[in-house]
Nucleic acid binder design. Structure first.
Lengths: 154, 154
DNA sequence: GGATATTGATCAGTATGCTGACTATCAGTA
DNA sequence: TACTGATAGTCAGCATACTGATCAATATCC
């Protein structure tokens, strides 16, 4: 019988599980308390000042109902701000704070270190190949989840 | 600046996200309501009758606090049973029910189909290579998460 | 044998993710 | 302009995952 641990879905879950643990560990060692999800959101807000929540969700493939809580926590930590949009009264414009910028700057080495640690069993070439295959599989399956990746629209 | 979407951690999250969506979709199409996590637990209980919860958690790399809820739901659906152990009065012995066996049997084609769909962007050779690299990275990082994989002990 | 340490299970609390519903608003059209 | 449909954000509810604590029972050590 085929072992459960040999199925792609199970390997996906397990690798993600380790990736999150490594990220949290490295970031905690650096003295910060930020989840992978919060980090990605904050970095994307910094790169796209004033964007709204739906756009942010699309850029990092989060569900729009998940983004609400993530931003709540970024705001609560003083790392980001949520403002009413002047163009569309339904939308909220997101901005990173000075504190958020400082945090991103100081946390970067830990984040990069985490990426290395989670691939530590692989050679550099294998790491590259793993990322290439993941990107390819993800591109083909993008529309299959409720929260697909969406590039910036015109 | 390095794009967030190019980091291994982000790719891991995204692939897992798609894998879960595909699994749930295929299983729902087959007329069942079972999560990937519940499926793995049930299949492992079937393969190891009478095992306790900690052992089960180790075999599929779940946190022991997570397993409680998962089994609650399997029991509630009538697919598994939780009995007091005679050897160790702290432990619970897990068994699959007839209904659980039937469900596993009927759900297998959907589960296998899901594994194919989540790799549909890759050639057969690439799919194999992705799985090999994931297994290797996971093996090296096994101890880094709170819920490592644990083989059956003597 | 009795103190101590460890272990199996559960619980409270927090953070993703999702489904589905809802409100407010905007956009397009008859 | 009034109607219709789509969109931004939020909420309730459920299912993983994890941290850290607790309780009961077992193992270990002096």
């Amino acid at each position: 019988m085929k072992d459960n641990n040999d199925m792609p879905g199970h390997l996906a879950r397990r690798f993600q599980q380790i990736a999150v643990a490594v990220f949290l560990g490295e970031v905690a060692d650096a003295g910060f308390d930020l989840t992978p999800v919060q980090y990605a959101a904050l970095a994307t807000i910094k790169a796209n000042p004033g964007l709204d929540q739906v756009t942010l969700a699309g850029l990092i493939a989060y569900d729009r109902t998940t983004i609400t809580g993530v931003i709540d926590r970024l705001v609560q930590k003083g790392l980001a701000e949520r403002r009413a949009s002047s163009r569309d009264r339904r939308a909220r414009e997101l901005e990173i704070t000075e504190e958020g910028r400082r945090t991103l700057r100081k946390i970067t080495p830990a984040v990069e270190s985490a990426q290395r640690v989670m691939l530590r069993g692989l050679s550099a070439k294998e790491g590259e190949e793993l990322m290439r295959l993941l990107r390819k599989a993800i591109a083909a399956g993008n529309e299959l989840s409720r929260a697909p990746l969406r590039g910036v629209q015109a």
